[in-house]
Nucleic acid binder design. Structure first.
Length: 425
RNA sequence: GUGCCUGUAGCUCAAUGGUAGAGUACUGGACUGUGGAUCCAGGCGUUGCGGGUUCGACCCCCGUCAGGCACCCCA
């Protein structure tokens, strides 16, 4: 093995093929965001560590952030998530921003942890948020956007499900079980582990580590399998009606075991998974009603979710839905027959570009079969050949590499002819 | 931070302790004005690195580095 410098642990190199997928993903996210009227925005990748100290989970800040001191001695973090930045931007212009605020963003994030399947240290995330409104339609809209996104990239409701719960409902239910407020966070952790631990271990964890009584854990256990629990919540009832109205109810289910890890969620929480449960959560989100206030603004609530590029890539691959993308943007390769005719080919290439055709000029007068082979590996659909026969009559051979058909046309008509070939296939 | 697994050709992987191979990719040719298919030819390795055991190590042992997976945690 050559002594090459390795990429930083947990990062990925985006060769043109991978970059084409990322760009495609971005395009799908943009399309769905705009369909719902959301505006694109972006925050700095560097933020003060204290921005996260306010509200994100303890572990996230202390153990999982890339943190460094800049040359002036300030403590800077590579952003591990976007929502605190969002709260900061909103708080800064809170009075002048027209409500409701509908914003979306796509960019890189970093977490310092051990990479494994579906998890890297650098990842890209779509964030989309609706701020300034607390209503069933606001909550349902975000879930609907997620569902519309899945639909748009070919993932059906048989393959993907968005599971929804409400922390307010859970708080009430836990209070009825006699769980004191300071124990709720621990019980949330316990709930989060429900499908990760075997039943016996889960019980033991709840009793020994969280401090529940056997009666409490039995009742909690019953609670977490009660798929009708949402009917006891007026908010969730209105939410599911709104989901119905928005036409995405086939993607959405109630699940009392959905809690999500972040400390700042205050109401509806949701996550999307593949129905077989093979992968980690594809997206996760919820309502946060205190966040803007926590960074110094007036209390203003919002709801949003984040969807990363890694897991969705794995899911699309599994279902055979990852698009076959062509990294080469050119539609035409102009070959060079020999050194003498190189100038003719170069002029033809320039002419095609003036006509708006994405054109590559082969940069060397090598054997024709090599040039065509190159076009083939790049999946460039059309090759143009100008040999002595064509040149003497100001003509060019247009070869369609998809069908193998070819035709001799006048050079002056190339733009039009190529347009026809591209359009009819 | 904890545990398990894996490091062999550019890539994917073989090789009862007896001098290291295949597919694919690449290059050239069959086909000197035409790609994909087929056939032929060609090069390739300090077996991650360092020690040890052995007459002999890709193989066994120790260390080390790297990667993967799971736990932890999850935006």
């Amino acid at each position: 093995m050559k002594p090459t410098i390795r990429p930083v642990k947990g990062t990925r190199d985006f060769y043109p093929e991978e970059m084409a997928f990322r760009t495609w993903l971005y395009g799908q996210m943009k399309a769905v965001s705009q369909k719902f009227g959301y505006q694109e925005w972006e925050a700095p990748i560097l933020e003060s560590l204290e921005l996260y100290a306010a509200k994100s989970g303890e572990e996230l800040v202390k153990e999982q952030s890339f943190v460094f001191a800049d040359r002036g001695g300030d403590t800077i973090a590579l952003r591990p998530e976007l929502t605190p930045s969002l709260a900061r931007l909103v708080a800064q212009k809170q009075r002048e921003l027209p409500k409701p605020i509908r914003w979306w963003s796509f960019g890189p994030f970093w977490r310092y942890e051990r990479p494994q399947k579906g998890r890297t240290r650098e990842f890209f995330q779509w964030n989309i948020d609706l701020i300034g409104v607390n209503s069933a339609y606001a909550d349902a809209e975000l879930v609907a956007i997620g569902a519309e996104f899945f639909k748009s990239i070919g993932l059906s409701a048989q393959q993907i499900v968005v599971k929804v719960n409400d922390r307010k409902l859970m708080e009430e239910q836990l209070a009825q079980l006699g769980v004191p407020p300071d124990q709720i966070e621990g019980v949330y952790r316990l709930i989060d582990k429900l499908d990760k631990l075997p039943a016996e271990k889960w019980r033991a964890y709840g009793i020994d580590d969280i401090g529940l009584s056997t009666e409490q854990i039995d009742r909690l256990s019953a609670l977490l399998t009660n798929r009708e629990l949402w009917k006891e919540s007026a908010d969730l009832t209105a939410f599911f009606n709104a989901i119905d109205d928005l036409g995405v109810s086939d993607y959405v289910e109630y699940d009392p075991s959905i809690i999500r890890g972040l400390a700042y969620y205050t109401g509806v929480v949701f996550e999307a998974r593949d129905r077989s449960g093979e992968f980690r959560a594809i997206l996760g989100g919820g309502r946060y009603d205190n966040l803007v206030g926590d960074v110094g603004g007036d209390p203003l609530g919002g709801i949003g979710f984040a969807l990363g590029d890694v897991v969705i890539g794995l899911v699309l691959e599994k279902f055979g839905l990852k698009p076959q993308l062509r990294p080469a943007p050119a539609d035409v390769l102009v070959t060079i027959f020999d050194a003498v005719l190189a100038r003719t080919s170069a002029k033809v290439a320039a002419q095609l570009r003036s006509g708006g055709v994405k054109t590559e000029l082969y940069p060397d007068a090598v054997k024709l079969d090599k040039q065509l082979k190159y076009a083939n590996t790049q999946a460039i659909p059309i090759a143009i050949i100008i040999g002595p026969d064509e040149a003497t009559q100001s003509q060019a051979t247009v070869r369609d590499l998809r069908s193998g058909q070819q035709q001799v046309v006048k050079q002056a008509e190339l733009v039009e002819q190529v347009g026809n070939w591209l359009g009819t296939k």
